[in-house]
């Protein structure tokens, strides 16, 4: 759901960066408390994720480095630092340390009931906040300057959205792991984007896609041996995206291709018609018959296109001869005028 905002805000890779940046937080939280309590670990992840996000912000606004550099930098540096801490922890004599690296790749099967409740609660809060600030989010998304002039505090709204994205990511970490989290954030939103231009519909669709890929993915991974849940979910989501890319009625590749071919055919028809028009022009009587042969040196002509022109009533055939009809002549001359008009 929140992914929709990330996709539209061109911050898609933020998810990736945050999920990596959360690692040192988990490690530090563990170092401080010495216990493997899910909530404290998540809190640590949240804090370090937020620090990462705001540092990225700082780099982008204060220096001339571009956002991709900032993202990659924060991502790798935080992750490396997290790894350093993790290996450091592994050397410490503490029986609890095992399983910390589960956070890296995630394992939905390790979730216990309390975790699920926790997720449900957080999801609920996200939903409520989103509905309350729906208008503000929307307006900030599409026209930030306008929002400012209306007197909204853009910074607060911005921070709010970002915090919730971070929160969602940190929660998801347990399920699908660091690497795949960004796909979970992006894939449903990217798929939903293809089907609609309306934000509310997009968010709704993204939620459905996300839920479906979660359910399908888990089902597939449970039915087979040795399949970890995270990757399967991601692949299911990826299939959704691919499907959306190809088959969505307005933006999809398939329909785009169909439209493209159709346009090209139309253009060729027009070319033939224009050619005929030029021939017919030289005679006083527009329905003066000509042989089909003289069309042959013209590329746009095939039997099929000629038949199409006949179907549309622009041309009449008479054995080996053709002549333009009244209507065809008119259309063709209009065609020519239109072209001239658009040239000017």
């Amino acid at each position: 759901m929140l992914g929709s905002f990330a996709v539209l805000r061109k911050q898609s890779l933020l998810g990736d960066a945050i999920s990596h940046a959360a690692l040192p937080g988990i490690a530090i939280a563990f170092l401080i408390t010495g216990a493997k309590d899910t909530n404290t670990l998540l809190l640590g992840a949240l804090v370090s994720g937020l620090i990462g996000t705001f540092w990225i912000r700082g780099i982008v606004t204060k220096t001339h480095l571009k956002s991709d550099t900032a993202l990659g930098l924060i991502l790798s540096v935080f992750f490396g630092f997290g790894m350093l801490l993790l290996t450091f922890i592994q050397k410490q004599p503490n029986a609890n340390q095992a399983g910390l690296d589960k956070y890296l790749f995630g394992q939905a099967a390790t979730l216990v009931e309390s975790d699920v409740w926790m997720m449900a609660i957080v999801t609920g809060i996200c939903l409520i906040v989103m509905l309350t600030f729906w208008k503000e989010f929307k307006i900030l998304l599409f026209d930030a300057d306008y929002t400012k002039t209306l007197g909204f505090n853009t910074k607060t709204i911005d921070i709010l959205i970002t915090s919730f994205i971070v929160l969602a990511i940190v929660l998801g970490l347990q399920t699908v792991g660091v690497v795949l989290m960004s796909a979970m954030l992006l894939a449903p939103a990217a798929a939903a984007r293809q089907w609609t231009n309306s934000l509310s519909k997009m968010v709704f669709l993204a939620a459905i896609f996300g839920a479906f890929s979660g359910v399908f993915g888990t089902a597939v991974s449970a039915s087979q041996n040795n399949l970890s849940t995270g990757p399967v979910i991601v692949i299911v989501a990826g299939v959704f995206v691919l499907f959306s890319f190809v088959f969505s009625p307005k933006r999809g590749l398939l329909f785009k291709q169909i439209r493209f071919v159709k346009n090209r055919r139309d253009l060729e028809l027009h070319k033939t018609l224009a050619f005929m028009y030029h021939i017919a022009e030289t005679h006083d009587n527009i329905s003066h018959p000509h042989t089909i042969k003289i069309l042959n040196n013209f590329q746009g002509y095939t039997k099929g296109t000629l038949q199409k022109l006949v179907d549309r009533g622009f041309v009449e055939l008479d054995g080996n001869m053709w002549h333009l009809t009244e209507e065809g002549f008119k259309t063709a001359s209009n065609l020519y005028n239109q072209q001239n008009a658009s040239d000017e």
Binding site: V7, K10, Q11, S12, L13, G15, D16, D68, V179, L180, S182, A183, L185, L186, A187, A190, R193, Q194, V234, I235, G238, V241, F245, R251, L253, K256
Partner: peptide, 16 residues
Amino acid sequence: TGLVKEDTAIGLVFPI
């Protein structure tokens, strides 16, 4: 294809 932005494209391809 212009369906999504570049960063989204990256974010989709590599996890898959």
